[in-house]
Design a protein around this nucleic acid. Sequence first.
DNA 1: CTGAAAGCGCTTACAG
DNA 2: CTGAAAGCGCTTACAG
Lengths: 334, 334
Amino acid sequence: MAKLEDVAKRAGVSTATVSKVLSNTPYFTESTRQRVMRAVEELGYVPNLAARALAAGKTSIIAVVFPHVYDGVFQDPHTLHILQGIEAECTQRGYNILLSTPRLTPDGVDEHYLRLIQSGYIDGIIALDNVPIYSVLEPIRSKSIPVVNLGTHPSEHYVHTNDYSGGFQLMQHLLELGHRAIGIISVPNDLNLSANHRMEGLRAAAQAAGVDFDALPIAEGDFSITSGAACADLLLQQFPTLTAFVCLNDRMAMGAVQLVHRIGRRVPDDISVVGYDDIPMAAVFDPPLTTIDAHAPTRGRDATRMLFDVLNGKFPDPVVYPVDLIVRESSTHT
Amino acid sequence: MAKLEDVAKRAGVSTATVSKVLSNTPYFTESTRQRVMRAVEELGYVPNLAARALAAGKTSIIAVVFPHVYDGVFQDPHTLHILQGIEAECTQRGYNILLSTPRLTPDGVDEHYLRLIQSGYIDGIIALDNVPIYSVLEPIRSKSIPVVNLGTHPSEHYVHTNDYSGGFQLMQHLLELGHRAIGIISVPNDLNLSANHRMEGLRAAAQAAGVDFDALPIAEGDFSITSGAACADLLLQQFPTLTAFVCLNDRMAMGAVQLVHRIGRRVPDDISVVGYDDIPMAAVFDPPLTTIDAHAPTRGRDATRMLFDVLNGKFPDPVVYPVDLIVRESSTHT
DNA sequence: CTGAAAGCGCTTACAG
DNA sequence: CTGAAAGCGCTTACAG
């Protein structure tokens, strides 16, 4: 495998010159540049990134940090949508993605993640830092690694959506349809900060309409389809007269719909069900889900662009996306 | 940030000793080992992986290569299931995952991928090498990077499933239920080798039952839900008397079910629909899908274990998984 | 059982 | 505009 030295010899210049030509430093004779480039071409030279990383401290690797919680980031279409945006942007800029899914405990994060942070391997981080018990940004604070946060733990650079507003709109929608007997399908409040903010939005909308939020029946799932079905089952057994379910994500909403159908009732005629995220399947589900579009596909891309801005010494403004209520057929008036 | 030299000084030994103690070389006084370990502890020393990569040629990074085709690997729950298995196994062994989604053309693969291969960054590769026009393993052959292939391009080490058998069982199932007017929802044959093998299985089962496979109507989608619906629409307009659809993956099957419902007919009473992959949603879909379980979750894990075997100098046997027909409610007799 | 020293393949002030 | 040389932080024969 050809190295810089080989290229230098063949081009009749020093390794320093080759290095500089390759990194596009100006002030070189056109002829030198061409000699170098031809040697590179002829030898099929490709730089050894490990060496470059050591010498220059630049690796062309960015870490995507998605904490490992509940049933796994790999099960969540929403998370994947974000990853897709990150990947597209990184690939375009010649960067590689290192996928990190640290395991969190109240005491901190696993050793493996800590090693990665200090490995000298990564130029920057995009994090989905959303787990209340611990922020994965914590061990990074003492380092100088640029970070953009897609989660809601405090961070200098971030791309958020307005979860509070999303929750508010969702509840408002059901209330406007006349629903009052509304079951909440939530998650434990130590699971996800975004979910907590959505809950606050739900509460605010209820209170604005004079509805006692705390009196509404609530069940806690884990974002999975099956947990949504289980929650709906539980709630309907205790409160058979419920006319609607608000679910904190689309997958639980899909589970709730299935449970309702399984017990011989109809969505939305008997019971309205609304979700959150607008995953691709939401639009083609039966019935299509009323949900909140939180712009996952573009959020990953924007976070990545922001990270590159930071890497280039710019100071990008934080971004908070608005969210959009998407009314489909899973909800109707009482 | 503490480096090896700092640890050595503090422990009163040479850097060579520290390095060897840390890599678990035997033959060290217990007291030396302890002095070193304490110094490591006190300084919070973490090795710089870039330096280690350069010096030892070991990076603790393995690349997961999922060629970028059709609507993207990130949309495919099946692919993600595989990734989940890979991630779990790598994390457990202290390895990092570098995600690579090369863009393929008949002429080859993008420059970015080529650079990664030669970067000196990766210890091994797990590939889903399934695109007929080009094998991502091609540029690796001249290198000495260990590879395990989850796709069906030729490779020394691989973990497969028997797509042919899956196709065969699926068609056999419908034929046994009495179906003869069967629409095939496939993909273009330059898209995916696994899909092609499934098609061969379908054909063989048809022929074994005396059915002329080439006479069956066929439409080509792109694995997405919406394409499944579009194909079903097309086929039913041309052949209104079809009693069943075989789809080459679950998502297209879900699209087909939705189209059937949309035009006021029922699954399975009017039309049976079967899929392939057994993605998590298949079991909770309405109706639950008859499909082929190709063991995605364990396949990623097994491929990763195989890769570590190769890295450790072993010669693991290739693995071909059997596949299982899962009969649910989306298919019934004519 | 332990250490001195060379080397992995780059980049980067510095000097000219 | 170009090059000599030091250095990035490790590992690894080799010698003792």
